[in-house]
Design a binder for these strands. Structure first.
Lengths: 197, 197
DNA sequence: CCTACCGATCGGTAGG
DNA sequence: CCTACCGATCGGTAGG
């Protein structure tokens, strides 16, 4: 009985977090009100607080959910035995996959993290900085191995991440064909620009 | 006398718009209050309304100021007699220049335009769509001329614009050397990926 | 999960 | 350019 209740509560919370992500993406964190969210969930605003502690808690859940997935992927890619250029392509494909399948959450964690409160804010910023450093280290490996052009690795990382994260049409192309087309174009343009000729 | 007063007012307004851009960039449009802005200008909140009509008017000024500059540059580039790849490079350099010299305004017009009210909102969206179409048309010319790889032009435009617009470190590198380094890297990575080998 | 409600803050106005 | 102030809306709580 208690077990079932916990499960019900946590799935209810997941629904709220997911609806919050959609709302925060559409209106921005500050402009989205808890009354908006309540309406989209189908309850009164006060009822939301039986499942969550605060509005910012919703933002934590979204931002760290995304950050954790990226960190785990980075662990996986780093420990693999692929070439640097293959690792870069793996990461690009993962980012695209995240944009296609978790568009709202990724978008929000990318553009609304500034509204996190401070123990979480600096934690998030640190994770972000580390992720980028590890990504740049892979590119630097590739430069040393003569797989990748001699470019500034941190700049290349920013270009890759923003190029992918900026495309708003990912979520419109849930049709796998379109997403796959977009992905191929992306890789051609981005990796084509990186590969040693 | 009247002349001088008008000039004083308009320069006062320019200061307010500029301070607003810095504040909107830092906190986001919704989270930045008119009281914050008043403090940064050095007056009481109510006094701002002798120079501006509303908070959203500030956003109009910022967004359309940027949009107009981009449109004029596009006119200039289009009417030139350079090759397609040269035109693309001109536009990239202009975007970078805008990021270095008008960071706050460009950042805000890029990420806070959603908060425009509706006659302005759709106008802005249309201008944006048109700019991207004209940019894509240049790339398509380049593809036809065999200057540029056969890629999807609209996707390439989004990649270019977001790659440049996403770099937060532009404004930290007002030292011309750093900006120039960043620019060269950018061109190498982006155009290098576009040029026909 | 709801009704009822609170204190804080917001954009903006009146009047001088 | 300021003081004084308004109505609306916000995140969140009490109590059931």
């Amino acid at each position: 009985m208690a077990r079932i209740k916990i499960e019900k509560n946590s799935s209810r919370k997941e629904v709220i977090v997911s609806k919050a992500a959609a709302l925060f993406r559409e209106k921005g964190f500050k402009a989205a009100s808890m009354r908006d969210l309540a309406e989209s969930v189908g309850v009164e605003a006060a009822s939301l607080y039986n499942h969550i502690k605060s509005k910012t808690e919703l933002l934590h859940e979204i931002c760290f959910g995304v950050a954790n997935r990226f960190m785990h992927k980075m662990d996986e890619v780093e420990s693999g035995s692929n070439s640097a250029i293959e690792k870069v392509e793996q990461l690009i494909r993962f980012h695209i996959d995240e944009m296609v399948n978790h568009y709202e959450e990724v978008y929000v964690s990318d553009r609304e993290w500034k509204h996190l409160a401070d123990p979480y804010l600096s934690n998030f910023q640190t994770q972000r900085r580390m992720y980028r450093k590890r990504f740049a280290a892979i590119i630097e490996d590739g430069i040393r191995n003569k797989e990748i052009k001699k470019i500034d690795a941190p700049t290349a990382v920013l270009i890759l991440l923003h190029a992918i994260g900026g495309i708003e049409s990912w979520h419109r192309s849930t049709q796998k064909i379109n997403a796959s087309n977009l992905t191929d174009n992306m890789i051609t343009i981005l990796v084509g620009g990186l590969e040693l000729k």
